[in-house]
Design a protein around this nucleic acid. Structure first.
Length: 178
DNA sequence: CCCTGATTCGC
DNA sequence: GCGAATCAGG
């Protein structure tokens, strides 16, 4: 493994996009470590990032819980069920005609994680088409090292079927009144 | 304990 | 040039 032109180019791009050294390393893969990335960045004289887009950003308050849960957080994995749960969590937002999936807005792709970036402590909820290079995992911190999902996706994953059905029925009757 | 980038120094 | 080990910090 070495710093091919291709990898250097990737490094420049990702680093300037504001990804951290470990994120860049995971993205490049090929056995490139965080230290390798940092070392290379210094040798290339990129140590001072153009504007530190991610670092300067006000730490994006708790991305786990979107204000309006996405109607379809992902696709290919029982989207109908997820739709129901989202409705149960935030009926108003989703009943509104202009409500639409906010995945890209609420949690930037750069905060999702690839398989290589996935850690033991991270949420394993799949996002996107597993056969696509865009495929990511949620990656949010899962609580207390307990389950495989973050709080938000645990709700989705484990909410009993009855609860989903009840939530859906409540919504329907609410819509009928409106 | 999780993570960040910076630095050193043997290879 | 390379990057593991280490450091200092959040």
């Amino acid at each position: 493994m070495s710093w091919t032109d291709e990898r250097v180019e990737m490094l420049r791009k990702l680093w300037n996009d504001g990804l951290s050294a470990s994120q860049v390393a995971a993205e490049i893969g090929a056995g490139i470590t965080r230290n390798a990335v940092i070392g290379k960045i210094h040798r290339l004289g990129l140590a001072q990032r153009a504007k530190t887009p991610l670092a300067a950003r006000p730490r994006v308050a708790k991305p786990q819980r979107p204000q309006a849960p996405p109607a379809r957080v992902h696709h290919g994995h029982a989207p109908a069920v997820i739709g129901n749960v989202a409705l149960a969590l935030a009926p108003r937002a989703l009943v509104m005609p202009d409500a639409r999936p906010q995945e890209e807005v609420v949690i930037p792709m750069s905060e999702r994680v690839t398989l290589m970036e996935l850690r033991e402590s991270m949420c394993r909820w799949p996002i996107g088409d597993p056969t696509s290079p865009e495929f990511r995992f949620c990656g949010a911190k899962s609580p207390g090292g307990g389950g495989p999902y973050c709080g938000y996706h645990s709700q989705i994953a484990y909410q009993p079927v009855q609860d989903r059905r009840r939530a859906r029925d409540q919504l329907r009757s609410a819509a009928r009144l409106a």
